[in-house]
């Protein structure tokens, strides 16, 4: 039994044509639309509706859900847009929303959007929607999914997006900034250092090298250890081997006692 359901809002009208699985329905009851054969989405101000099947409906519902969720929360999704599905995003300039419907989801020849112009087939239909139009689309979708007598298996997952879904782009942006800044700083510093001439190493004149053997005094550290019978004295100028582990002798003990 063919059934038509319409969800009409001032700026958006969804029309669903389908069949009922039940051969007989009780008199007076509203039959259940269980098989969708044709789906139409009409926006006020547009020339023609978007016409498609179940794929168009499912994709439009998912896109609407994602877009509205992002609008209310103000959090952008990190998931990449799939060109084979309906995309609804806030317009980059001038406010409003951009709706992009791939031509593959539209019934060919039934919609004015799917017709070819000058022999060139459009890969997708693009519409600019106002906030009120998107709200009416959302409301029509909510009424449709809330209707138990129309495609009862249709569900909209209204749930918060996980941190991973919204944070990945932010993390990339946040993390790439210091990395780029650091790399740029190193590059600039390297470029600046490159132009600084390397200092020339001046070797001391040969006369100064030969003088220490005759005129310069010999430091105590380099002086040869004295050989004698007196006890070694602990001093910073003592040879390293003796200052580190001085040999304890009976004559040296009174000098270290308090």
């Amino acid at each position: 039994m063919p059934i038509q359901r319409q969800y009409s809002l001032p700026d958006c009208v969804l029309t669903l044509d389908g069949l009922s699985n039940l051969t007989e329905s009780a008199a007076g009851t509203r039959p259940e639309l269980s098989v969708l054969t044709r789906f139409e989405c009409y926006f006020a101000g547009e020339k023609a509706p978007l016409v498609g099947g179940r794929e168009l409906l499912d994709s439009l519902i998912a896109a609407t859900n994602t877009c509205v969720q992002g609008c209310i929360s103000g959090v952008k999704s990190a998931l990449k847009a799939d060109d084979s599905k309906v995309q609804l995003q806030p317009a980059k300039e001038g406010g409003g929303f951009d709706l992009r419907v791939p031509a593959a989801l539209l019934f060919q020849g039934t919609s004015a959007f799917s017709s070819t112009e000058e022999g060139l087939e459009k890969p997708a239909v693009e519409l600019h929607l106002s906030a009120v139009q998107v709200f009416d689309l959302m409301e029509a979708v909510d009424q449709l999914t809330a209707d138990q007598q129309t495609l009862p298996e249709l569900q909209v997952a209204i749930q918060p997006r996980s941190r991973r879904d919204v944070m990945s782009t932010q993390l990339v942006l946040e993390q790439s900034a210091p990395i780029a800044l650091g790399a740029a700083s190193v590059a600039i510093a390297a470029a600046a250092v490159f132009f600084i001439p390397a200092p020339k190493v001046q070797s001391p004149p040969k006369e100064l090298q030969t003088q220490p053997s005759t005129g310069l005094p010999v430091s105590p550290a380099t002086a040869p250890p004295k050989t004698g019978t007196s006890a070694p004295v602990l001093s910073p100028t003592a040879p390293p081997d003796q200052s580190v582990t001085p040999a304890p002798t009976p004559s040296a003990l009174p000098t270290t006692a308090p």
């Binding site: 969720q69 929360s73 997006r161």
Partner: peptide, 17 residues
């Protein structure tokens, strides 16, 4: 909207779970 309350409630925790 019809599901406005659910949409607002879930969007408040977007990216927090």
């Amino acid at each position: 909207g019809t599901a406005g309350m659910q949409r607002l409630w879930s969007s408040l925790f977007d990216g927090e779970v």
